[in-house]
């Protein structure tokens, strides 16, 4: 009964992080294969969902002009009023910035990392591609770094931080996957939060060598020992 539940779960929710399910996946190859197969199908789905048409420039202009509309009357002296005022300012300022900077790079590194983790987590590292140390170091050479060992790296690829080609590595850390990004510091990111999070993921940014080293994992995972180990394994060419 329990086994059937796990098999159903591998299809309906292959992202499930319940210890029970993860343990079953670790001990049952057929279940692990089914989960991986489903993650692959979900990735194809995600790509298909991404093939929606581009919005028109009229639509983008209209969205930009929304912050010119009056909002509902509210009491600004209440705590929710202060929050509302702050949120309104954020919505209008960043909304306008979003439209004006659509042809430039994203200024907020943390937001970008969170977005990559949220949308890439379902497929990045789904299959252990067993990248060799030589292959990884060839990839990382353009980021002026190399690794001393790659036993836990299961996937690597370049990714795009809105025009900035960056390295994306996925590590298997115990039962979890951890995303590591290397973003060249050649761009002047206006906002670089050292620690950041959203409802699902948490991450840190550290300036190392000529890159920002970004580590993002699911919120419940303590990445401190992983980061210490990672930094020991990375050799930077200044």
């Amino acid at each position: 009964m329990k086994q059937q539940h796990h098999y159903d779960m591998a299809i309906s929710d292959p992202y499930c992080q319940e210890p029970d399910f993860l343990q079953a996946v670790a001990s049952d190859t057929a279940l692990a294969n089914l989960r991986d197969q489903q993650l692959n199908q979900d990735q194809q789905l995600l790509e298909a969902f991404g093939r929606a048409p581009e919005p028109s420039s009229e639509h983008l202009d209209a969205i930009m002009s929304i912050s010119d509309q009056p909002t509902t009357a509210r009491k600004f002296w209440s705590p929710s009023g202060y929050f509302a005022l702050a949120a309104s300012v954020i919505l209008s300022v960043f909304g306008a910035q979003f439209m004006m900077q659509s042809n430039t790079y994203n200024q907020d590194l943390a937001l970008h990392a969170l977005s990559h983790a949220a949308h890439g987590h379902s497929y990045a590292g789904v299959t252990n591609t067993h990248p060799s140390l030589d292959k990884l170091n060839l990839h990382l050479a353009s980021y002026n770094t190399s690794l001393t060992q790659a036993n836990d790296v299961i996937w690597n690829k370049d990714c795009d931080f809105e025009g900035i080609t960056s390295a994306h590595l996925v590590y298997q850390h115990q039962e979890s996957r951890i995303n590591v990004y290397l973003v060249p510091d050649s761009y002047d990111f206006k906002q670089v939060e050292l620690a950041f999070s959203n409802e699902k993921y948490a991450g840190t940014i550290k300036k190392l060598g000529t890159n920002y080293l970004i580590v993002v994992a699911q919120k419940n995972i303590d990445t401190t020992p992983f980061k210490q180990q990672l930094e020991q394994q990375m050799l930077w060419q200044i």
């Binding site: 929606a52 048409p53 919005p55 028109s56 009229e58 639509h59 209209a62 969205i63 929304i66 912050s67 509309q69 009056p70 909002t71 509902t72 509210r74 929710s80 009023g81 929050f83 509302a84 949120a87 309104s88 919505l91 959203n198 409802e199």
Partner: peptide
């Protein structure tokens, strides 16, 4: 596409007008 543009535009317009109902920024999505 056209319906989607209208829908998304209306969504952001309503969100903007009712921004004080958003108590937690993490719940925005």
């Amino acid at each position: 596409k056209q319906v989607t543009e209208d829908l998304v535009q209306e969504t952001f317009l309503r969100a903007w007008r009712a921004i004080d109902q958003l108590a937690d920024i993490n719940a925005a999505k």
